[in-house]
Design a binder for these strands. Structure first.
Lengths: 199, 199
DNA sequence: CCCACTTCCATACCGAGAGTATGTAACTGA
DNA sequence: TCAGTTACATACTCTCGGTATGGAAGTGGG
């Protein structure tokens, strides 16, 4: 009978990668990609560089995991918010507002909006986003279009444009003097933009 | 009577900074910010690091000059394109299309859309853009609004959102399989977005 | 239970590159 | 003419990403 190890390999591995990604998310989000060293991340996770380089190809790969994690989180938030709305159109509007609110999180802005494109390149960012944030947006738009609530056009391209507008709105909002008071006006403008696409 | 030097200090200084910025624009645009070393830039400009660090605080400062130069170039292109249009609204549309075409330039995308925000931060990027690209867009929108061609709302915020949409559209366009054929459809969607704001 | 094998992680090391210190040539102004 | 400033090169340091190596922990077949 094989003796039982205190922790299986999968457990060890999973625990350390989780701790690494969590620490990286914290530091990348606070200080940005370039000023954050792998060594600092490993130390914050209670280990050394060796562990990090064992589980990740390099700094960019670790960042990628953090980026994906951020995407997962916001996609979840968007889904939940949209699910509470009665119809496809109001779900779309609610999603936009939720996204803007999420942009008040500095770590999200730093990782997803500022560093993401530079570190991963547009190709990869878009690929990841299309599996999360953009996916939710696309589904919402398709639903609205299917309900006949939206004027005709190229929906994938439209999603992309709206998404770009929302990202910019998020930055604008977050860097305003009083984000809480600026939210309604920015959200209103975003909804006006979206509303103008309504049939 | 002071003897005439072959070149005045201002001439020397101006010539080297110009060569440095030109070389940096070339390399940053082709390879990106991180993979481009100061030494490589200086060498391409026919000098050593010392010159670069004499005229610029550091790598980011040199990049900033390049970024500003890119902004100047596109702002000029936008102004020229818009000036040929008969009315404020068609000038706005023409400007959007010109911006999209400009996004086909890989160096512009790399410097302005990908690296800019990560290297300079959103604050600084916005400040520079507001003196160039966003300034042109704002003027165009104000003119259109003054002509009564646009629905009411917060114009500064609207400029920002439209600008974000255009940037995303530019990336989408540039990375498509056949940019030349994709341009009409993306431009159409952008113009639909803008057109929906028409009165 | 044993033992070769793999996985996990730490320590030691290497090289690239950003930034600094210092020296020297070119220009300036009194 | 010459002291002082500006422009630039050379030499150096130091941080940091990445690799090589060694050992500890877990795994699976006998």
């Amino acid at each position: 009978m094989p003796r039982q190890p205190r922790r299986t390999q999968a457990e060890r591995s999973g625990a350390t990668t989780f701790k690494l990604v969590a620490a990286a998310q914290e530091l990348f989000g606070r200080d940005g990609y370039a000023p954050t060293s792998i060594e600092a991340i490993a130390a914050a996770a209670g280990m050394t560089k060796g562990a990090a380089y064992h589980h990740f190809r390099g700094k960019a790969a670790l960042f990628r995991s953090v980026f994906v994690e951020e995407q997962r989180q916001i996609a979840d938030a968007l889904r939940q918010a949209a699910a509470r709305e009665p119809d496809s159109w109001s779900a779309l509007l609610r999603g936009c507002r939720t996204f803007l609110e999420h942009c008040l999180n500095p770590a999200f802005r730093q990782i997803v909006l500022l560093d993401g494109p530079a570190v991963l390149g547009w190709e990869q960012v878009r690929e990841i986003e299309y599996a999360h944030t953009l996916r939710v947006l696309t589904e919402g738009m398709n639903a609205a279009a299917a309900d006949g609530a939206m004027i005709d056009g190229d929906l994938p391209a439209r999603c992309q444009l709206i998404f770009g507008a929302l990202c910019e709105a998020g930055m604008l909002l977050a860097r305003s003097d009083d984000p809480v008071r600026a939210l309604p006006v920015v959200a209103a403008e975003a909804e006006r933009l979206l509303g103008s696409l309504a049939r």
